[in-house]
Simulated assay, not measured.
Amino acid sequence: MSARPFRFGVNMAICESRAKWQDKARRAESLGYDVIQVPDHLGLPAPFPALAAAAEVTTTARLGTYVLNAGFYRPALLAREVATTDLLVDGRLELGLGTGYVKEEFDAAGLPFPSAGERVDHLTHTVSELRRLFADHQPPPVQQPGPPIMIAGTGPRVLRFAAEHADIVGIAGALPIDDNDTGHAALAKKMDLVRAAAASRETEPELNLLVQGVFTDASTADLTFQRQLAPGLSDERIRKLPGILSGSPSAIADTVREYRETYGLTYFSVVEFSMDTFAEVIALLR
């Protein structure tokens, strides 16, 4: 796959007030982030109004969902949300979609929790229907034929579908294949699958990696959040995972460059608590 320019996103999830939220959005843009993103989990801000509020105080940053739980939505209703939001943010929306994976959230929403295969089926149906609906939606989205779509996940079926149909393929994580793997063999396997599935496309998809932690001092890093994502792994093994970046800003910048050269990854999204730390790295990569 050809090399693209770097892009950097920050996934913001804490909303205490309108003023604080908008201050944080301004700051993200000033720190060099290309995309302000919002996750989709119960107990966190609703993505579309949060992105519209961020758009009011930013000018260049794009606004993205990272990622919507497709199982919470029906295509016609989602198309209305997406088209209207794209209109209100002046065509800066990026739509990130995933299958949804937290059973407790489906239970809390009063929705059945489908099997993994059924959730992938619903995701693929949703993407197909959205593109059909955008063609003559009223009001129409600013971006035609619709906002760019990211599909993010970890399993082979989702990644294959993303490579074949999405504008952006999101790699949500890579856990070790075996006791000898740091997670990089698992990541290489995912990227091989994506390359093969995208080989016949006229336009290559952009490749994104979710960065779940950025630490300039690994010895004092708080890995509480990362342990939830990689249960059973020691702290030492967690620090070596592809979605964890450790070292000086210049060393991390070298790692990001290596990811681009080795895997074709050019779009990196960090979680909110890494926003300031990773901004130092962004400055070295521009």
Rank of each mutant, 00 (worst) to 15 (best):
L210E: 10
D254H: 07
F215W: 10
D167W: 01
R26V: 07
L187W: 01
A108C: 00
A55Q: 00
F106C: 00
V82S: 01
L229G: 08
A230M: 13
L285E: 06
A197V: 13
T216L: 09
V211P: 01
R201I: 11
C15E: 08
P114Q: 10
Y263M: 02
V82C: 00
M150R: 11
K103I: 01
A52K: 03
L63A: 02
Q143F: 03
G71M: 02
T220D: 08
A135I: 08
R260F: 06
V194F: 06
H122I: 06
V102T: 04
L284Y: 02
A279P: 05
A251S: 13
F8Y: 12
M191H: 04
A28P: 03
N69T: 10
M150W: 09
S17D: 03
R4Q: 11
I244Q: 04
T262Y: 08
R227W: 10
V169H: 03
K189P: 00
R157F: 09
F278M: 09
K20D: 11
T84R: 08
D192N: 14
L95A: 02
M12V: 14
D179Y: 01
Y267I: 06
F106K: 01
E202I: 13
D121G: 03
A53L: 14
R237H: 07
G173V: 06
G146C: 07
R132N: 12
F273G: 00
L42E: 00
L93S: 02
G146Y: 01
A109W: 04
R62Q: 07
L223N: 07
T255Y: 00
P249F: 06
M12Y: 02
V281Q: 03
A221T: 10
D107A: 11
F6D: 03
R160E: 14
P176C: 00
A3K: 12
G155Y: 08
R62W: 01
P231A: 14
R195M: 05
M191E: 03
P49I: 10
R7F: 06
Y66I: 13
Q37I: 09
N208P: 00
A188I: 11
T124R: 14
G117V: 11
L68V: 03
R74H: 14
L233H: 08
G232P: 11
I177A: 05
Y267A: 03
E202A: 10
F268I: 10
E94Y: 04
L88K: 04
K24E: 06
L77E: 15
T59R: 15
A116Y: 09
R227F: 12
A186L: 04
P242I: 12
F106P: 00
S200I: 08
G32V: 07
R27Q: 14
E81H: 14
L42I: 07
T182E: 01
V127C: 05
R18A: 12
R62E: 04
Q226E: 15
G146M: 05
R7Q: 15
P176V: 06
D34L: 09
E202H: 02
L63N: 01
T224G: 13
L187E: 01
N69F: 01
L210A: 15
A230T: 15
E94R: 12
A163L: 07
Q144A: 13
T99F: 00
S200M: 09
Q37N: 11
H122G: 02
H137T: 13
S234W: 06
L111N: 04
E129R: 15
V271H: 12
T216F: 11
L207W: 02
P39C: 06
K240M: 05
